[in-house]
Amino acid sequence: MKNTDNHAVAQAVHDLGSALWFGGTVMGVAGVNKSGADLQQGIDRIRVASSAWKRFAPAQWAGIAATLGAGLQLTRVGGRRIALQKGFGTIGALKAGLAVAGAAATGYAAYSGNKISQVAEQTEARGQKLEVLDATQPTDQTPPELAKWQRRQRFAQYAVPVLAAANIACGSYLVQSYRAAATLKGVARRVLPG
């Protein structure tokens, strides 16, 4: 079989994985975590979000795995470009770093969400009334341990879509650098002085 620079399947898997990861996270922040505010009981506000995130987690991690796995394949097939085209390797390394940081932030957000759920259930089991605005927003009456995890979750839940979006933006730059004019310009900048 002839060796080509065609990487359409890897690019499609990467882009679909990134879209799933980014879109699902934005839906979670904008919808899932806030949806509990429509419920009467604080514990139910947390349970609804926790249940939704547990159901979505396999899809989200599949999106992340597709992004990382296909990203490795795209790096492998783009090896000559990394060596020859100025800027390609730098943006590729930045993109990889953003993907890994985004996956770590996703893991931390999931961990924080689990801690919120655990602390909320413990509070409920002790017969204490649980007051929260929604899954990530405490009130003045929220137990301090729960409020701490809600603040951490709120930070992580916004970091994840920002990192996923930056990863997608870097991917767009790299795809555009495959245009003939961009390739020639990048190679010329690499080999010509000044």
Rank of each mutant, 00 (worst) to 15 (best):
A99L: 10
L146G: 02
S35H: 00
T67N: 08
A19P: 05
K86H: 12
G63N: 11
G23M: 07
Q128F: 08
P143M: 11
T142W: 00
T90Q: 13
L133Y: 04
P143S: 08
L163Q: 06
N3T: 14
R154E: 05
V77N: 09
N3G: 10
M27E: 08
R80P: 01
E131R: 07
D140M: 13
K54R: 14
V9C: 11
Q141Y: 05
K86N: 05
T106P: 08
G31L: 09
V13K: 04
F56G: 09
P193N: 10
T67R: 02
A70D: 05
L68T: 04
D140R: 15
L72K: 14
R190E: 05
V175P: 02
F155Y: 13
T139A: 07
G23W: 02
S50R: 03
A99G: 10
G28Y: 00
A65I: 09
L94H: 08
G113I: 02
R47C: 07
I46A: 09
G171C: 09
G28R: 04
A165E: 03
R76W: 12
A65W: 03
A135R: 06
G92N: 13
S177V: 00
G69F: 05
K86A: 12
A164F: 15
K129L: 07
D140K: 13
Y111F: 15
